[in-house]
Amino acid sequence: MHQFHGMGYAEYSRKHKKRLEVEKQREKEYVISQHVVGSIERKLHSPPVDEHRLSKRM
């Protein structure tokens, strides 16, 4: 905990304001990670690009 949030568990458990800050940051990081995962999944499941069709357009 100290490595990621700059405080130990004892301080985290004692100070409500600090706990809220940590949890807001965790939620923000979670949302960002879900966007990254979604982007990767869309790329994995999209049809392959036909390079020959692309070169004919140019």
Rank of each mutant, 00 (worst) to 15 (best):
M7S: 12
M58K: 15
F4H: 10
M7A: 14
G8K: 04
H45G: 00
V37A: 06
R57D: 01
S46P: 01
K15S: 04
Y9F: 14
A10L: 05
F4I: 12
R57V: 11
M58S: 14
K18D: 09
I40A: 03
V37K: 11
V37L: 07
M1R: 06
R42Y: 09
R57I: 15
E41L: 15
Y12S: 03
F4P: 05
H16N: 09
M1P: 06
E51T: 12
I40R: 07
Q3P: 01
M58H: 13
Q34P: 02
E21M: 11
V22S: 02
E41P: 00
S46C: 02
Q25S: 11
P48L: 14
M1T: 14
V36A: 09
K15N: 09
K17R: 03
H52I: 10
V22E: 02
R53S: 07
I40S: 03
E51D: 09
V37Y: 08
M7I: 15
R53D: 13
S39M: 12
K15H: 10
G38N: 15
H2A: 08
V37G: 03
R42D: 12
S55Q: 13
S33E: 05
H2M: 07
E21I: 10
V49L: 06
K15M: 07
L20T: 13
P48C: 12
R26Y: 04
R14F: 08
R42W: 12
H35S: 08
L20Y: 03
R26K: 14
S39D: 08
G38D: 13
Y12K: 05
L44S: 00
Q34F: 03
E21D: 13
K28G: 07
K24F: 08
V36F: 04
M7P: 00
K56C: 07
R26E: 12
L44C: 00
G8H: 04
H2E: 15
H45D: 01
L20N: 06
R19S: 01
H2I: 07
S13W: 05
